[in-house]
Design a protein around this nucleic acid. Sequence first.
RNA 1: GCCGAAGUGGCGGAAUGGUAGACGCGCCGGUCUCAAAAACCGGUGGGGGCAACCCCGUGUCGGUUCGACUCCGACCUUCGGCACCA
Length: 821
Amino acid sequence: MQTAPRHVELRYDPAAIDQKWQQRWADDQIYHVDDADPRPKWYELTMYPYPSGDLHIGHWYAMAPSDCHARFRRMQGYNVLHPIGFDAFGLPAENAAISRGIHPYQWTMDNIQNMRGQLRSMGTIYDWEREIICCLPEYYRWNQWFFLQLYRQGLAYRAQAPVVWCPSCQTVLANEQVLNGNCERCSTPITRRDLEQWFLRITDYADQLLDFDGLLDWPEKILTMQRNWIGRSDGVDISFDIAEYGLDASEIRTFTTRIDTIFGVTFLALAPENPLVAGLTTDQRRADVAAYVEQARQTSEVDRLAADKEKTGVFLGSYAVNRLNGERVPIFAADYVLTTYGTGAVMGVPAHDARDLDFARKYGLPVRTVIAPIEWDGREPAQAYVGDGFMTDSGPYDGMTNQEGTEAISNDVERAGWGRRAVSYRIRDWLISRQRYWGTPIPMVYCAQCGTVPVPEDQLPVLLPPDADFRPTGESPLAANAGFVNVPCPNCGIPARRETDTMDTFFDSSWYMLRYVSPRHESGPFDPATIEGWAPVDQYTGGAEHAVMHLLYARFFIKALRDMGLIGFDEPFLRLYNQGVILGEDHDKMSKSKGNVVNPDDVVGEMGADAVRCFLMFIGPWDQGGPWSNVGINGIARWLNRVWALMQHDANQLAGGDSNDETLRILHRTIRKCHNDLDRFKFNTAIASLMEFSNHLSKVWGESAVDAATWRECVRAFLVMLAPIAPHLAEELWERNGLPYSIHQQPFPEWDESLTAEETVTLVVQVNGRLRDRMEVPVDIDQATAQELALASPRVQPYTDGKTVNRAIYVPGKLVNVVVA
RNA sequence: GCCGAAGUGGCGGAAUGGUAGACGCGCCGGUCUCAAAAACCGGUGGGGGCAACCCCGUGUCGGUUCGACUCCGACCUUCGGCACCA
């Protein structure tokens, strides 16, 4: 959808004003950030963009309001760092290279050049001297340096892990390249392959990452998502006896959060990949089991994790002994058991677990209720009962509540040596290896003699060779580059091979906030002399889509750096605010195929940066997102037009104007409202309050109901409040009022609480909670007088005549509510 | 299925438990104009009434309260996130 016809004739030339002031601000470096500035520091960061080519309206929606907020903090007297950079490594650059034959470096840098211009057109306070670009060696060498530190700390390790593989393209696929289980390029069904890959031990920090209470002012929604992602479960590792089979292992370890249901176990289920499966399979069952395991192996992860998949499994022919009651229960292999969670084996309690019940019903296994719901009728429930109740059919534990049972059984199990209390997490270690070209080379060398050898720090950076063939060939693109791969071992000097995988780009974004503090520092990732002054980030803003990956990785990174003694703080981002999503005019997500995409350059060209900034902030609450509107923005343009005219009136014409305290009161109330709203990201209501104020000014101007001094005071304050919202227009009008450059170095106006108070208020009179009258009364009217006036009102009397007045509620300054019966 | 957020005029939305609909869009009427656009002024939740006013109204049904868009319970719908986690 192209921009609908607009009908607002602008009275000023936004293009000229935008250009004029952007140039002037840049020339004067008024947004230059000085580390030595003595004012308190405020670090406000917006998630940096991926250089995809063009700035779209979503970027504006993320960046213009956050710029407004950062400007507001600046005007409150903070030394504000509000930097920008580019998340410049990643798959799209490689795809562009493959499809268009442009080198990823060229594609990325061209895009950055283009986007810089677009970003400048927003009129933000970015200090471009601090720009960072992750794909440049001056940045990624510190990725490599951090990797080496993590390796030294034992936080980086190498292990086999499956990757998604396209057999047709002969390449590793990222999850986002998989569509319905097929390769997005050639639609071939994907398979899996095991490769040696690098991991970071984020799981070591699982409990610390769960601890955000009191530390972080983040949306509860994000904290909940992180909690769920980490997925801590407290339970018991409990073993079942298989000594009778004479295997190396004499028991099967299972993990359960419901040890209180142990007497209800009627089977055991092992993940098909569990190494015990082969040994526990009897000869008669071997063929069936082998077929099942093979089928499970073939099934792609995607299919295996598909929703509502029917539970399947196969009996191994063997049994395990539940030591608590001596019962032998059959052992199955079942693909609903995950090898990556817990112990890769579960105890099946059909009566009290929905999945186990599905499985038991399919294979005709007994269902034994051992937790009796309150008022239980003794029959087998239709669904698994997962609630609390009393222990039953559980030997010595009968009659206890299940909480007591959990405690007692846990203690007894630990005493008997059959198991112990344990914690399981859903979160896995962070796999950072990517079989890609356009990323940071992992600084490791594999030597036949010395094994895995880290590249010495003085040999960093390991440069990404510009001449690699990055087209899909069946292995990591760098692996085909002999000049890159073949190096002498840093240790012993014999010919060795470099690691040819590159790093996940989330590695770059896990510490980029530290780089902005000293982006040109050459002897380390950041300057230790200045880092603590700025970091951690005081206010972070960005999309909620980064709730778990980026935000969790960055938190992990900071804690690891802290433990290495590199920094002295625990968290990267103290406050977080998520903006919503800007939708198309049809209230649907913007997409090229729907034709509802808004190109910000077009609208900015037509109406100016300020109108676009204002409209984006005016749509609605920033965290809720909302629809773009080509006609809606006309309202903002009209308002800016009126402001343009209003703010250029000659106050001398008001020489005979009446002094008007009402205008002063409205000014101070507006300052208070605007201040509080900008503080809390309530841009829409802040702008509404400025509109109300300008409407009022327009009215009193017309009536000459204001004196010149008050008018000038109002104009000054109004423009300063407008400055963070519409920086170009405010600066131009500031200049035209003969006020000293720059408005962006003015403090935000203060309000005088005593001046916001009215002398009289409109008191609402209700009878039984229903509005019946309004009275203009002095603010400090006492209850007795207010009631008396209310009861005397001719509009109230019809409702009280012949009734008994039981009482009256008086809310000072608000209302009187007469309660009659 | 679970977790989270949200349901208010024709539209975007506003409202510390206290005048529902601020502000803006759109629409209607007017001024200006040969005319239109722009601009400016006025009106605009629904129903009734000549009018003063009255009744109804914040997804549905209940509850708490002198008073509920707001708090509580159940349900419906929409949107996000997670999804066999033992």
